[in-house]
């Protein structure tokens, strides 16, 4: 099985693809911070933020609705916030019965709930776009040059490289388990839950040992090429004037959102 499913990068020739990854990381984080700062019900600011998302989609040449389609990922979590609908005092809008309980939705509760969802929805779209227009290794470089400790960026780079190799191993293990999970006619396959958990746990243990041994071999391969405990990398990126303009423009837009949100 090939794990391209894990790669969220979409090759295209666009302004956003060409931007320095550091710019993209910083602007994405600023945008998300800005969303968190906007007060509830700042509709004008939310609208501008959405325009920003749409414009970024257009600039990426991935299509206007690219991030919209993928943004449902954050929705299940909205369940957590649903209680604010009923719990914040305000004018009752509607009341409905569920089994024996009455639920009253208040206007203040609705305002807060919708605002939380909009913030989450806008933020996740920018995060989706970030990895769609930036190759993951470039993203890791950007983090390194934004002063994230080298040991963390290195672990992340290794994680990304071996994610594909190890998930492949997991799927081979799972398939082998499946292949042997035969059931005699009329009886249920496998033992109890604990027995099934034991099979899964032993798989994890096995995977750990294989990974451990692999890390030994990788260490040898690194040592064979001169590694003595410190990693050197080249910085493949250089800020161009366009990168500075893009940053300035994005910051101005985000500033405008904040102003609009407080009018």
């Amino acid at each position: 099985m090939h794990f391209d499913a894990f790669d969220r990068y979409h090759e295209k020739e666009s302004i956003l693809h060409r931007l320095d990854p550091r710019v993209k990381v910083v602007v994405t984080v600023l945008f998300i911070v800005s969303n968190a700062l906007l007060p509830d019900g700042a509709w004008l600011a939310f609208a501008l933020a959405w325009m920003f998302v749409l414009a970024s989609n257009l600039l990426s040449k991935l299509g206007l609705g690219y991030t919209f389609k993928r943004s449902i990922i954050a929705l299940p979590f909205a369940l957590i916030a649903i209680t604010v609908l009923f719990s914040i005092p305000g004018n009752p809008l509607t009341t409905f019965r569920l089994f024996v309980w009455d639920f009253t939705i208040t206007d203040a509760g609705l305002l807060r709930f919708v605002s939380i969802l909009i913030r989450a929805w806008l933020s996740v779209q920018m995060a989706i776009l970030l990895v769609a227009v930036t190759r993951f290794p470039d993203l890791v470089h950007a983090l390194e040059h934004l002063r994230v400790p080298a040991i963390l960026t290195t672990i992340i780079a290794f994680l990304y490289r071996y994610l594909f190799v190890l998930t492949d191993e997991v799927f081979r293990l799972l398939r082998a388990r499946q292949a042997r999970s035969a059931a005699a006619p009329g009886s249920r396959s496998g033992g109890g839950v604990v027995w099934r958990a034991k099979v899964a746990g032993n798989m994890a243990g096995q995977l750990f040992l294989r990974s451990y041994e692999r890390s030994d071999r990788i260490y040898n391969a690194m040592v064979a090429r001169g590694y003595v405990g410190h990693l050197y990398t080249l910085n493949p990126h250089e800020m161009k004037s366009g990168d500075y303009y893009a940053t300035a423009f994005a910051i101005a837009a985000i500033f405008l959102m904040q102003v609009l949100g407080r009018l």
Binding site: P137, V165, R214, R217, N220, A221, M222, T233
Partner: peptide, 25 residues
């Protein structure tokens, strides 16, 4: 020294970084 399993030998995310590893070090 080239090891048997290329997944152990190629430990960097990109081809460039892997081929540059030796000369850099």
């Amino acid at each position: 020294l080239v090891f048997q399993n290329p997944d152990d030998q190629l430990f960097s995310p990109t081809v460039f970084e892997d081929v540059a590893f030796g000369p850099l070090h």
